[in-house]
């Protein structure tokens, strides 16, 4: 018998691995995906397929260039989570080059250039989104209206045609796209329309008392709760984020309901739930200590509210997350847990 290679205990494992964790996240996103398809049409599927193809090409090229083993890293699913996050953020019927350039940027500049999985300081999906938001503001704010609102349900092929060519034969494009609730509230405010009125106009499209965006958010929440149970994500992230955001909106809504939207609207509009369960929970770029995670999530919640209400963008999640990413090392430094037997 040859001397065995020296390895340290433990010689057993709970059989969890990175791929499984990532896959769980991906599965948790399915309810939201289906809701999205139901409410906004098949645009997102086309976008997602486009993104996956981009992902495969970019990952392969980058891993080759970095001299890393391709297969284990391309199948670690981390890139999939990135592009899924990004796909949910962009308008479902935006031109094809939006998602391609966004994914490419997110993967190259958000991940590989920092050394790949585990080494990136910024959330790649949010980096890609911020890149798109700044580079193509017009395309990024023109959302496909929910079919219930536009009164037209577009098919998969129509979506694909539209995404690649920019028009659908025999259809008025303006009827299909419009502003998101967050956007309309913002523009409404600038035109002197109170938040209450803006929301009331939106309410016409409500399905069982919830807007389409509200339903997508609920779907995200369902997947998120499942992830907490399976320990794919820590509870501190959604609790901290939603708590801070909810508290902020509650307080300001109490101060002036005409100026500040109510808590339910804040929590169920835009990418709130997507961020709470899928984006800020990205462990690589988040704080790791239990307290730190909570603080990190709270910080994002507050920043999101600030940017939404007083900033220049209708939804500030990307910037809030990127800002808090910078603060992670500091948070980690000051939130180290008390070690057993040590005094504080």
């Amino acid at each position: 018998m040859n001397a065995p290679e020296l390895s340290s205990s433990p010689y057993t494992h709970n059989n969890q691995n990175v791929r499984k964790v990532m896959l769980q996240v991906q599965i948790a996103a399915l309810p939201a995906l289906f809701t999205h398809i139901y409410l906004f049409g098949f645009g997102i599927v086309v976008q997602w397929i486009l993104a996956v193809m981009t992902l495969l090409i970019v990952e392969y090229v980058m891993l080759r260039m970095r001299g890393r083993p391709v297969l284990p890293f391309i199948t670690d699913m981390s890139g999939l989570i990135t592009i899924t996050g990004l796909v949910f953020c962009i308008p479902p019927d935006s031109p094809w080059w939006i998602i391609v350039s966004g994914s490419t940027f997110a993967l190259i500049f958000g991940k590989h250039l920092y050394g790949g999985l585990g080494y990136n300081p910024f959330n790649p999906a949010m980096l890609g989104y911020a890149f798109l938001l700044i580079s193509f503001p017009v395309q990024m704010t023109q959302w496909t209206l929910p079919s219930s609102l536009s009164g037209h349900s577009i098919s998969f092929l129509e979506s694909a045609y539209y995404i690649f060519t920019g028009h659908i034969p025999g259809m008025n494009l303006d009827a299909l796209t419009g502003a998101t609730p967050l956007n309309s509230v913002r523009t409404g405010l600038s035109q002197g329309i109170t938040v209450v009125d803006s929301i009331r106009t939106e309410a016409s499209s409500h399905l069982f008392g919830l807007s389409s965006w509200g339903w997508v958010n609920v779907a995200f929440m369902v997947g998120g709760v499942w992830m907490i149970i399976t320990r794919s994500i820590s509870w501190q992230f959604p609790v901290g984020f939603l708590g801070a955001l909810g508290l902020m909106s509650f307080i300001f809504n109490q101060i002036d309901p005409n100026l500040y939207p109510p808590m339910s609207f804040t929590l169920l509009s835009g990418g709130t739930m997507l961020a709470a369960f899928f984006i800020i929970t990205d462990p690589v770029t988040a704080s790791t200590t239990p307290k730190g995670r909570f603080i990190y999530a709270c910080g994002i919640g507050i920043l999101v509210y600030v940017i939404r209400n007083w900033g220049a963008f209708p939804d500030g999640i990307a910037f809030a997350i990127l800002l808090m990413n910078i603060a992670v090392p500091l948070i980690d430094q000051y939130t180290q847990p008390r070690v057993f037997g040590h005094k504080r």
């Binding site: 290679e5 020296l6 390895s7 340290s8 083993p69 391709v70 297969l71 284990p72």
Partner: peptide
């Protein structure tokens, strides 16, 4: 002294694994 876990070996085995896996793919 406990030696440091040898990452180069890990990477090599990964490469081997991926090489083995490639034809399968």
């Amino acid at each position: 002294k406990w030696p440091e876990p040898d990452e180069t070996i890990a990477i090599e085995t990964i490469n081997q694994q991926s090489d083995i896996n490639k034809p399968n793919q």
